[in-house]
Design a protein around this nucleic acid. Sequence first.
DNA 1: GACACTAATGACACTCAGTGCCGTTGGGAA
DNA 2: TTCCCAACGGCACTGAGTGTCATTAGTGTC
Lengths: 213, 213
Amino acid sequence: MTLGSEDAVARPRLGRAPSTTHAEISHVALTLFMERGFDQTTIDDIAREAGIGRRTLFRYFPSKNDLPWGDFGPLLDRMREQLSGMPDDIPMMEQLRIAVVEFNRVPEEEWPYHRRRMELLLHVPTLLAHSTLRYASWRRVVAEHVARRLELPEQDLIPQTMAWTCLGVCLAAYEKWLDDGAAPLLDLLDEAFRLIDERIDTKVVQAHRGARG
Amino acid sequence: MTLGSEDAVARPRLGRAPSTTHAEISHVALTLFMERGFDQTTIDDIAREAGIGRRTLFRYFPSKNDLPWGDFGPLLDRMREQLSGMPDDIPMMEQLRIAVVEFNRVPEEEWPYHRRRMELLLHVPTLLAHSTLRYASWRRVVAEHVARRLELPEQDLIPQTMAWTCLGVCLAAYEKWLDDGAAPLLDLLDEAFRLIDERIDTKVVQAHRGARG
DNA sequence: GACACTAATGACACTCAGTGCCGTTGGGAA
DNA sequence: TTCCCAACGGCACTGAGTGTCATTAGTGTC
């Protein structure tokens, strides 16, 4: 859930060079969004501030809602690879915990932007809604892994529900991170997954017991 | 997750009478969306077909994305009441199952529309995204109940995660319902909740055992 | 039946997101 | 230098959503 690296990978030396990067535009947008609010910032404001044409901005990002996200695809690929390369002798929940924590690791220079990013994504209704589409591909990665691991079809109830649960855990950890501001994100995520791993099989039992006793 | 009753409750007999209802507009919209596709249907198309002005349509629904939903608020209130009035001697997961099944009960005359509605909400990206905002209030109701029941703060990890899990279960059941088309929705929901209730405490253990053994 | 009150309606104008089109720009290769 | 090609940016257009305001149509009163 971070912005990812610059786009400068290895251009096949042909045609005019790009005049900017996803990261640069995203940073400008994040700053303006935090200053004026998401709805009060127009695409023209951002384009002007970034020193590019409005039309160009829409070539980098398909919509205003995508601006805070930066470049999401590569991160997802990395997580998929990491999960599929995970040794089988690790318990599933632990695999998921490790992969999720790793997925959320952000280069230090991105930290201030990452906080703004998540602040916006979780609290601006429009962005909250749009995020669903990103989360859907993320959940897919989790569901795939769980399905493979438990030898079930991906569409089965267990992998699907597990993916939703993982997403919920992550978002709860993010909320906490934004709230108290002191604890490092990765610690919170790690802790949350351990807690769920430990309690997920007892919380329902507790409820039963509480009801029966 | 249905459209709910007509708006004709008990108008305080003053001023001009409304010329239509949420349900009526929603039905017109659902029909057009299914015929031409969501993106290919404009607000003007719907207003014209419903025989009202474009401006009037926006007084009934705040956005195009809200058209399939109808009137959601009252349903949510009903579920909240039902959960809070639930006897304590019923296990929590069973309480949730009953409330969720009841929440999804739809009057028979709504059935054909309900199918279109869910088809759209789950498969049109824009609507899928927008639904998040509705789901958020739904999750809140679940989280509130779980928190009260387990005597935890609502913001705690367990209630939050439980709410996400319930949402995931519901959506998985809905997907299945749309897919095979034969089984009644309420049966699928009931079945899914029972399955999760039964397996949620073993699935992780299975994974552990599978890994260790 | 005329009048007053009030709420719903619809027409108009406006902002802004997003798209298609097309001529321009500038870096690398021949 | 010239050619090639991708990135750029301007322009015009569609469609969602909003603010404003005059009009319409019920209800109660005289």
